[in-house]
């Protein structure tokens, strides 16, 4: 499970949804795996407004990953400066180190095994072979 997925998930228990502490879910006992994928710079630039940055920082710090900067990067921060186009020539934008780091965190860092805990009710969802299981036992539905 990619860390970006956690940007869109919350506790499956209905009564938790209105509580701010049900997001983000907190990874516990996580075994991480890096799965490399191609970087998509337009995606990284466009996703920025959708990232819940403070919550992402919480997750990465709980996972013991390198600390993210306090503020989210800007679109410009993600482009490597300096590539000047000669006249009549188009130069494709290159990702900066900031973009590469963000790509690594959001899309290449995955939880292979572990649990995701709700900060409101404490329920823990298992992640097995990279697949999170949000099915609830009968009495919690």
């Amino acid at each position: 499970m990619k860390l970006l997925t956690l940007n869109f998930l919350t506790c499956a228990i209905k009564t938790c949804k209105t509580s701010p502490s049900s997001f983000p879910l907190h990874p516990r006992d996580a075994e991480l795996e890096i799965l490399e994928t191609d970087i998509n710079l337009p995606f990284l630039k466009n996703i920025l407004p959708r990232l819940m940055w403070d919550e992402l920082r919480t997750i990465t710090s709980e996972l013991g990953l390198p600390e993210l900067p306090p503020a989210a990067p800007t679109r410009e921060d993600l482009v490597e400066p300096g590539a000047q186009a000669a006249e009549g020539e188009e130069v494709e934008e290159q990702p900066s180190q900031t973009a590469k780091d963000l790509h690594r965190v959001l899309l290449e860092t995955t939880v292979k095994e572990g649990k995701l805990a709700c900060g409101n009710c404490g329920h823990e969802y298992k992640v097995m072979e990279g697949v999170p299981n949000f099915l609830l036992p009968g009495h919690l539905v």
């Binding site: 997925t5 869109f8 919350t10 209905k14 899309l107 697949v131 999170p132 949000f134 609830l136």
Partner: peptide, 22 residues
Amino acid sequence: HGASISLDVINGDLASCLRPHS
């Protein structure tokens, strides 16, 4: 051809684990 970003396939009941209005 790098045309999309695929997140995960989650084992769950309907859309119960998705953040509201996402």
